[in-house]
């Protein structure tokens, strides 16, 4: 069974199509990079895959579940890193993760492990608002894997990250199905076996790692 099967998924913002009949199949364990210019529809596609947005039309099945009807069940099995870190500035890094453990019903014992993975142990007790943008992004990535999801949806997680940050992305993607939107072709080549290129909401092409290099 495929991890993601999207058939003719479209989305309009008003009269403007943000996604136009996108087809996508992602097998379990696959890492797929979504490429494209600004405004190509990458974020819209990823938000639909993460169940944050309902498509205007089309069919979407994720992990064998209907992504339009069984959104809550699916959310328990996937992790999503949005373009903005979306963390609570008044809470410490540790408290941010503990809070999301409580919401997900995950064991709080996973917090130190997640902080270690994101190399944030040293700043665990600092308020998130005092962390650099890159540290906040690493915290958001650590939060996405607190509940050990099967599927990761990553929307430009490399924004504001240094070279070590790319290693963190590789570490969290390892052993999971992942869809990664990025502008960084080198990162896409390094981390993903397949690509989906969008332009103006349409699929321009799908390819393999070899094709990205070419």
């Amino acid at each position: 069974m495929s991890a993601i099967v999207a058939e003719s998924v479209s989305h309009w913002f008003g009269s403007e199509p943000a996604l136009d009949a996108v087809d996508l199949v992602v097998e379990r364990g696959d890492h797929v990079a979504v490429l494209g210019e600004n405004g190509a529809g990458k974020t819209t596609l990823l938000r639909i895959l993460a169940t944050a947005l309902r498509p205007s039309s089309g069919k979407l099945e994720i992990m064998g579940l209907d992504a339009l009807r069984e959104r809550r069940r699916l959310r328990g099995r996937m992790g999503y890193v949005a373009h903005a870190p979306g963390i609570y500035g008044a809470l410490t890094a540790e408290e941010n993760l503990a809070f999301f453990c409580d919401l997900r019903g995950a064991d709080r014992a996973r917090v130190p492990e997640a902080l270690e993975l994101a190399r944030l142990t040293q700043v665990a007790r600092r308020r998130a608002s005092e962390l650099s943008r890159g540290m906040q992004q690493r915290l958001a990535i650590a939060r996405a894997v607190l509940h050990d999801p099967l599927l990761l949806i990553l929307d430009e997680p490399d924004a504001s990250l240094d070279a070590e940050g790319a290693d963190l992305i590789a570490a969290v993607m390892n052993g999971r199905t992942a869809v990664l939107a990025t502008h960084d072709q080198a990162l896409a080549t390094r981390l993903c076996q397949r690509t989906l290129t969008l332009r103006k909401g349409r699929v321009l092409g799908q390819g393999s790692r070899l094709r990205i290099v070419q």
Binding site: A52, R72, R75, Y80
Partner: peptide, 14 residues
């Protein structure tokens, strides 16, 4: 303002 509501809603909490 903190763009946190989406992260909370995507946790599968009721």
């Amino acid at each position: 303002e903190q763009a946190t509501l989406e992260a909370v809603l995507l946790t599968a909490a009721a």
